[in-house]
């Protein structure tokens, strides 16, 4: 058992966690933040992507105990009074069908836009498809997901 002090969606949280608790289980079971999904549970699908210290990671492949002092943002934490531009873009461009993969798509989308903007690189449709390597949509809605991220990139 480890005691961790972390910031989740801007709020300080102090909790005891088992040493083998995965971040995704900590978020869903202990904090009841069920927006982060478990799809494959083998680090392939990306439905569980959250940001740790500003970087996209797979919460199903991260130990909660290793995150003492970290800042975690989940899909519940990206809206600030109104929807995040990435969320609005997915809405406007029909970037989801069943919606299961969407939390991970939103978090990976925000991460890639932030990285490309920081480097001054253009986030082309090709680059988005490459960046989405680790996010799987089984409705096969990639075309509109790519459009959504491009749309959001122009507004972020």
């Amino acid at each position: 058992m480890a005691n961790i002090n972390i910031t989740v969606n801007g709020k300080s949280v102090s909790k005891d966690v088992e040493d083998n608790t995965l971040l995704v289980d900590f978020l869903r079971e202990d904090l009841r933040l069920t927006g982060t999904h478990v799809g494959c549970d083998t680090s392939q699908c990306g439905a569980c992507v959250v940001h740790v210290d500003g970087k996209a990671v797979k919460s199903c492949t991260t130990l909660a105990a290793s995150l003492d002092g970290a800042v975690v943002t989940t899909v519940e934490g990206v809206a600030n009074g109104e929807l995040h531009p990435m969320q609005t873009a997915f809405n406007d461009n029909h970037g989801l069908q069943c919606g299961f993969c969407t939390p991970g798509m939103i978090m990976s989308g925000i991460d890639m836009v932030n990285r490309y903007k920081a480097d001054g690189r253009e986030l082309t449709a090709d680059a988005i498809r490459h960046e989405l390597e680790g996010n799987i949509c089984r409705c096969t809605g990639y075309h509109n997901i790519v459009k959504s991220i491009q749309d959001a990139a122009a507004k972020m």
């Binding site: 996209a56 990671v57 797979k58 492949t61 890639m112």
Partner: peptide, 9 residues
């Protein structure tokens, strides 16, 4: 290697 989220870890 892997994908962006894997490369962050």
């Amino acid at each position: 290697i892997g994908d962006p989220a894997v490369r962050h870890m």
